[in-house]
């Protein structure tokens, strides 16, 4: 183990330990809050694969997130008693199918055209979900019961906020490690070379389009996973989560936290949600928190384009 690795893994263990202990010491509200940060962080992290590593800004991640939610909802409503793993499989299948569809069309385009296409695709799914009332519950969405945490018949225990937190933490940490490994693999290197210079990557002989499609699908799957977790935490699926404002917030999390770091988006989500909570407490529930947050966001793009974790970007990716 090199020195860098030692420090990295020590830091990783410390953060994990803190997050594991957190629900034991935090009051109920903050427990839920921390879980929510992790879930939004996972969504933002999934979009970092595209923004930070492949150089494609997706404005359509709400579609993957939302389909994950509705997929989980389908599994939880159809099968009785509700099964956690089936919900995850359904959610991933939903998000994966949509991701394949979106990827096939949108990866032929670059830069802002890619951003606009993904945005439009997410709006298509929004309109479908919003107007297909018989299937999706329309504007009201779907509500369902939370499944129990079970391991293939070994044991089964109902979720409370602490066990849910640990479960979400386990999923997010595993996703982070998997994504980090993928981004360091030859496949990840090709994605980063597409970001740096697409024509040259093509000239070397890599089928750029195929790599992009796989990148979008990978990103969509993890976004769908975040959607499943959110559905399990909140016990509902609503079309608001497919609306493009969610995609916009995902991009904001990324930019605030620092793109191309995987961890940055989680930090960004935490920063954003904490600020929002703080503003809400200081000035009351009615306070339009997005106004000051918008100013902070704009100031960060102009003065701190690397984001909060940008300074550690190379170090985290080594």
């Amino acid at each position: 183990m090199t020195r860098h690795q030692k420090i990295y893994w020590a830091g990783f263990c410390v953060v994990m330990a803190l997050l594991i202990i957190a629900p034991l010491v935090l009051p109920e509200f903050w427990r839920r809050f921390l879980t929510e940060i992790l879930i939004w962080g996972l969504l933002a992290m999934s979009s970092d694969i595209l923004i930070g590593y492949t150089g494609m800004v997706s404005f359509g991640h709400s579609a993957f997130f939302g389909l994950g939610m509705y997929g989980a909802a389908a599994a939880l409503l159809i099968v009785s008693p509700p099964n956690l793993w089936l919900a995850i499989i359904f959610g991933l299948a939903g998000a994966g199918t949509v991701a394949l569809f979106v990827a096939y069309f949108s990866t032929r385009l670059r830069d802002i055209y890619f951003a606009i296409t993904t945005l439009i695709f997410s709006q298509i799914f929004y309109v479908i979900i919003f107007t297909w009332t018989a299937m999706t519950g329309g504007e009201n969405g779907l509500t369902f019961r939370r499944p129990a945490l079970s391991f293939f018949g070994l044991f089964s225990t109902p979720f409370d906020t602490a066990t849910l937190h640990w479960f979400v933490l386990a999923v997010v940490a595993a996703s982070y490690l998997i994504l980090r490994r993928i981004m360091q693999s030859p496949f990840g290197m090709v994605l980063q070379s597409i970001r740096e210079n697409e024509p040259r990557t093509r000239a070397i002989g890599y089928p750029v389009e195929r790599y992009k499609i796989v990148a979008v699908m990978l990103s969509g799957l993890f976004a769908g996973l975040a959607g499943v977790l959110y559905a399990i935490q909140n016990r509902f699926a609503a079309p608001d989560f497919v609306y493009f404002l969610v995609s916009g917030e995902t991009v904001i999390f990324n930019v605030m936290g620092g793109i191309g770091t995987l961890l940055g988006p989680i930090v960004g989500a935490g920063f954003f949600l904490l600020l929002r909570e703080l503003l809400g407490r200081l000035f009351g529930e009615q306070f339009p928190y997005l106004i000051p947050l918008g100013f902070i966001f704009i100031a960060m793009i102009i003065f701190l384009p690397q984001g909060l974790l940008g300074f550690a970007r190379r170090w985290l990716n080594r």
Partner: peptide, 23 residues
Amino acid sequence: RDPLNTILVTFGISLILQNYALW
């Protein structure tokens, strides 16, 4: 800078203006 920055900034502006109007 990268034109994508301008998308992000104008998105921020749109959030501010929209919430200002609501408020």
